[in-house]
Write a protein that binds this DNA or RNA. Structure first.
Lengths: 336, 336
DNA sequence: GATTGGCACTCGGCGCGGGCAAGTGCCAGC
DNA sequence: GCTGGCACTTGCCCGCGCCGAGTGCCAATC
């Protein structure tokens, strides 16, 4: 894009716009029908072949219209697209829907569904990151003779649990006592800063108790460390079917990706969007064979978590970016 | 099926089998190529037109082969299909995979993925029903000044939580004390049998505490009552794409159904399969427009919960039934 | 030098028609 | 009751030719 000719960008924008809405290669003539460019078809053709040389658009075959390339979408997003404020009804819909969600879980569930509905794409929301979260409370429950339930509650209101088999079981009172000591030792601390106080605590205990306590400490540490286990909520999966025709001749790999938490997690962790800032990744930028015709519009929310929509690379970026940005902001606000 | 002619059933079975594997209408000749029926094509044709009169198969058009109807599949499942024991490697795969799953959640997650993989269909597992579950433990955590986290743990190892805003907040010690009293009052009881002891408990409290305690009791009752909120785990969604060609010309409504927890819940609640017993529901029996070409093979597991696979009505019922039955049994066993 | 109108050329998509193959129903014979 | 044979139906495939949208190039113009 060294040649910053404004008209060429305008034409690129028009091509993207038309192609997104018609799903068909767009030619010079039909471009003129739908846009006030103030120049003739021949000029448009010249600019088009220049855009093609720069790799921003391409022809599926001679004597067909042009289609934006990934690079073309990228240029569109970076230099042409502008954020449009949502319509008043949309804003109202967001507000009323998110307003009375009691639970964090419910809030996110509504968010992801709303986002899918507004954008007509697949929506995904990462669970609130616990990375920077402080521990509020630890709870131990003896579920069976040799089975202990360890519950970790952080200040963000998130609850993680895990049942662990205990090899050297102690009486119920021991665990009640241990729980109190654990809480004194770790509550208020960062989840990342747990190892030290836990080992310290274990060493102060009498020898008979130490094995059992170590078991619990290990489980707790593991629980705190499983931020990779961060869940992801999805909605609007059926929307990929709608755009399936050319987006993905075969929906199967797409659906596979959506079930593969690892891939989704990677997509999220590769985003460094600060809260409210939108990041767009297109096609090969997503580094996944199944997603080479896809695009992701994501944003940060809350404290380091992310939400995003995933759709065909020929999606309505303007609407997508606007909606994702708005929702990320609303959710961040409601999370406080 | 009043005419219990064995050969006709055999032919029906052969038709189903061939159609399932080829996905193409099966004619009398190709039937003879693939099955040892001991009769001629003409005989097969006669039986076929008899089967057609009974509504078990039909022709998409004159001069085409036959396709089983829903009724035909039903007859096949009821009178022809037999349960085949799983292969040794399959059994081993199930055992090793389910063996070291710590969590109930993880066990179910693995189960549902395994089932999807083995059957190549969409697999779904209902969370363990809490209906008949006893309460193990109740935990109250003050998350903020006017926000309380109520946690309910049942003997099945399931953990439910809910944050409730408190209107008349009391000090932390109050809630610690209340928790102990609550546990004495309700632990060991059925979740369905909670209202009475809760109100009893509230009435014994001094007046100053009663409002706060009632708030908690209400939250707890609500939490216990939300069995409708039973979650469902899915896996293998991409498998519907594989069979999409004729199963569903449009995958969209299918995917919609899978996201609609309510519909899935209904499917599960309409099953009355006792643990280990397999129940098959075909096409219109599922009572959902989007599922009129689908079939569900389900079984009970544990204490009144269900798991199932969902696929095209032309699915391999023998394999499906065998797998679902085996998995339901294994899971029931590992749940203890 | 950029822009424009004109013109010849290219191809993919679509509709049409014939041949092919698979399948059926019926009938006479065993 | 079963079987082999035969005439008939019909969807699918393939090749053909037309049409239209679109392009690239070029000479003329501003």
């Amino acid at each position: 894009m060294r040649d910053t000719d404004a008209r060429k960008l305008q034409i690129l924008g028009a091509i993207v716009e038309d192609y997104v809405s018609t799903r068909e290669p767009v030619g010079s003539k039909s471009l003129l029908d739908r846009h006030e460019l103030g120049v003739s078809a021949a000029t448009v053709r010249n600019d088009m072949s220049s855009l093609e040389e720069e790799g921003l658009i391409h022809q599926p075959h001679t004597s067909a219209g042009r289609i934006p390339t990934d690079k073309g979408y990228r240029a569109f997003v970076d230099h042409v697209a502008t954020v449009k404020p949502l319509s008043a009804p949309e804003r109202r819909a967001i507000r009323t829907l998110l307003e009375d969600a009691g639970d964090v879980e419910e809030l996110l569930g509504r968010t992801v569904r709303l986002m899918a509905q507004l954008t007509q794409q697949v929506a995904m929301v990462q669970y609130p990151a616990r990375r920077q979260a402080r521990i509020r409370h630890v709870e131990l429950v003896k579920v069976a003779d040799s089975l202990l339930l360890v519950v970790l509650i952080t200040e963000s209101g998130r609850v993680d649990q895990r049942t662990v088999p205990v090899l050297s079981p102690r009486p119920t009172e021991f665990y009640a006592d241990l729980r109190d000591q654990l809480n004194r030792a770790v509550s208020g601390r960062e989840v990342t800063d747990l190892q030290r106080p836990l080992t310290d605590l274990c060493e102060t205990l009498p020898l008979v108790d130490r094995a059992a306590a170590t078991e619990v400490a290990e489980a707790l540490a593991a629980l705190a460390a499983t931020r990779a286990e961060d869940r992801i909520m999805l909605a609007g999966t059926s929307n990929i079917a709608r755009s399936a025709q050319d987006f993905a001749r075969d929906v199967e790999p797409l659906l596979d990706v959506l079930e593969e938490q690892l891939v989704l997690m990677r997509l999220f962790t590769e985003m460094h969007a600060s809260p409210g800032a939108v990041e767009v990744r297109i096609g090969s930028e997503l580094r996944d064979q199944a997603l080479h015709q896809a695009a992701l519009v994501g944003a940060g929310y809350g404290a380091g978590s992310h939400l995003a929509i995933l759709g065909p690379s020929r999606m309505d970026y303007v609407a997508g970016i606007s909606t994702v940005q708005a929702i990320a902001r609303y959710v961040s606000r409601y999370l406080e």
